[in-house]
Amino acid sequence: MTKVTLTVNGRSMSGQAEGRTLLSSFLREELGLTGTHVGCDTSQCGACVVHMDGQAVKSCTVLAQDVDGASVTTIEGMANADGSLGTIQQAFQDHHGLQCGFCTPGMVMASAALLAENPKPTEAEVRHYLEGNICRCTGYHNIVKAVMAASGQDAGGAVAAE
């Protein structure tokens, strides 16, 4: 076991990790940040996407010991300072971009990385970028609408009432 210290959502946090401990399980089990989800064991589903030093990564592909000192943003760090939903989160609610919520943290984190890279993506670019995130509930239609809306482009379709 080795001590690993990360800056998570702006706060310094430490825990113990074995050589084989994945960042995803370190966040969940050691740091108690259970918003990051694990939906597969082959790095296919993307439920565990976080931002590490500004890059979107599947946290199940990262060994915790290897990233001692890194700065990590998880879904718990995506709301506005006053606790209200951030732009992407709000768009997901407005456009019904989630159902069971399990893939949602990874979807939001991947979408944030896309919009940081490409602030006005086309719908095809959104679909292509999110290829690494599997959702079994929504059929993606409303996720794509949500990301388009979050980018300030007309998403088309209905928007939820309050």
């Binding site: 969940r28 940040l33 259970t34 918003g35 990051t36 989800h37 694990v38 998880t74 879904i75 718990e76 995506m78 709301a79 939903l85 989160q89 997901f92 609610q93 407005d94 019904h96 989630l98 919520g101 399990f102 949602t104 943290p105 939001v108 209905a158 928007v159 939820a160 009432a161 309050e162």
Partner: peptide, 19 residues
């Protein structure tokens, strides 16, 4: 088409799943 109230906890990482 009322917005889903459960979304807020899911979107902020505060869902409480069995794991």
């Amino acid at each position: 088409s009322t917005k889903r109230r459960e979304d807020v906890r899911f979107l902020t990482g505060n869902g409480r799943y069995t794991d």
